[in-house]
Design a protein around this nucleic acid. Sequence first.
DNA 1: GTGAAAGCGCTAACAA
DNA 2: TTGTTAGCGCTTTCAC
Lengths: 364, 364
Amino acid sequence: MTTSGGPPTVETIAERAGVSIASVSRVLNGHGARPNTVRRVEQAAAELGYVPNGVARSLKGGRTRQLTFAMPDVGNPAYVSMVRQIQAVTKPLGYRLLLHSTDAVAEDELDVVRSLADRTSDGLILCPIRVTDAHLEVLARAARPVVVIGSLPDAAAVDSVRADSVHGTALAVRHLVERGRRRIAFINGPADTVPGHNRALGYRAALREAGLTPDPGLTVTTEFGIEAGTRAAHRLLQARPDIDSVFCANDQLALGAAHAAHDRGLRIPDDLAVVGMDDSELAMAGQPALTSVDLGSAERGRLAAQMLVARLEGGDHPVRCETVPPRLAVRASTAGVRGAAAAPGPATADAADAGGRVAAGSAS
Amino acid sequence: MTTSGGPPTVETIAERAGVSIASVSRVLNGHGARPNTVRRVEQAAAELGYVPNGVARSLKGGRTRQLTFAMPDVGNPAYVSMVRQIQAVTKPLGYRLLLHSTDAVAEDELDVVRSLADRTSDGLILCPIRVTDAHLEVLARAARPVVVIGSLPDAAAVDSVRADSVHGTALAVRHLVERGRRRIAFINGPADTVPGHNRALGYRAALREAGLTPDPGLTVTTEFGIEAGTRAAHRLLQARPDIDSVFCANDQLALGAAHAAHDRGLRIPDDLAVVGMDDSELAMAGQPALTSVDLGSAERGRLAAQMLVARLEGGDHPVRCETVPPRLAVRASTAGVRGAAAAPGPATADAADAGGRVAAGSAS
DNA sequence: GTGAAAGCGCTAACAA
DNA sequence: TTGTTAGCGCTTTCAC
């Protein structure tokens, strides 16, 4: 059965053009042929509306030109901005992007890495919520290149891009101190994660650096989410009405905290300064607009994509580990006590500018 | 060359287990074999850490178990909630999800449909910004099942799920009228799209229904975005300080408008009531929380996924076209003139409750 | 129940 | 330059 009912294949074209399938393949891949052959093949292909079967091609070539991105939550703006940057890097190179939402379930993350063995994807960018020993084990045996967005032990032979939440947090605290705040509360996300732990470290370190004594009663831990932020802030303001500012582990929490403050009749920033984290669109949505620490989600996504592509297309090279420095976007929610609005465009300062030593060792 | 250096294949296992590759395949697919054979094959597979090559499987079977979702913008919360629902439906069925951000470029959308011919994906959910004749032509020849999220001519033989922006808009306007507002402005998104056009229709119709005369000076058209909303609202409030409420074509615009109102010293809702659209997380982020029309992004995503799966797995069935009714989430930004806060949980009302006739003909 | 062999659609090595 | 042919790894007849 030569020309059957299905979609056209190289064989269909070969028959129609009166050449062999090898010639068809050559012409279609630009591997040179006699002008006359080229013309006939191209015409036949056009007439039949031929599109090469990508699966067959992949089977032969061993590459699918598909990349996978696995992150905890599609809904989180920080990950969405990673998706956007990854697309920006890989799409022009002809890669398709497979999306995986792990809902922060570790077993799901492991499965994604394991499934690289099915040859369905050429590489993976993994954004785990927490790296366990099981992760390291599975990553070591990964069938395809993987780039991790997050902190890995130095021993792990895996490319990675990390944020620096220690210094990011410090950036926020220092900024509040500079604006004259002294009783700086902290609404942290889940503490049993690497970033959560590092933010707590950065917070305490920056307070001490400023000559302030960390007060355990000023730290609250909760899940991420606007409503969670509202509840946490109410609890905090109830127990400690003396605080003059609050730093939140992401913009959702900060927005929730701002709501709570308004409910209690507090003015922002006069009575309470608020700082968020991630510098997502939500920060602009605040009333007033929120100062926010940008941990470089977009930059991390871009770097990870570039590293993965380099691993796939470049030759072998040593394991890379990049750390993206945090930046502070200053807005009206931390304006000086005089209540003056911040400059129109958000002022930014990277960790170094703000007096930070971006120590690679303690980075996360 | 039998057992080479690459990853294990059916042949590797066959050798190790001392059986034929056919038996390996049968055992691995649960097609019955002698207990002893089963045991030996399973053991060999386990020892080798065998994972079937998905590409080879697809080539043979003609299905990739991959689905594609193409939408205008990964960053838009409305599409993100579609992604989440699509995942929820398809992941348990063993499908992977390919994501495509078309940036609202029509040619990109067409390419996605055309590329179905490469057999790399089993089906597509397409969310076009505007359906042109070229779309219809390409859709008619699609190599794989497609479900469109959006409005299609009745003649198109393509499954589709549509929102009802006409009635969604009317819901918002009626609600404002009920709350005693009379000078209701409208900040619309790009007007040269089907939804943009329909929102304009719904706005005017609802005003007339309430006995109010649409005033062209009260409608402003702009791009989507928080800052665009702020600028549009400033323009509006400058030219027409008499307005008592504003309806915005999405939550970003509404948030921007709320900012502008605050800047001008207007109180929400007392001086200006604000209604958004999409009922995204941004609505909760407003100060006060924004009343918002939910056009059912999540529901549309879920339905589209179910329709696609039905098309792929069920037998043939007639073309389906579902319309998702809008809902109104009432929050503090439209509280009554007395300034009382809305009930804690958002009250919702579907189009029918609010007195609408959900006419299929005019739906979009 | 099991094995040999065909073939999914393509690319590339080899011959002519 | 062109055609013949051998696989890529898998599933599935078809004999035995």
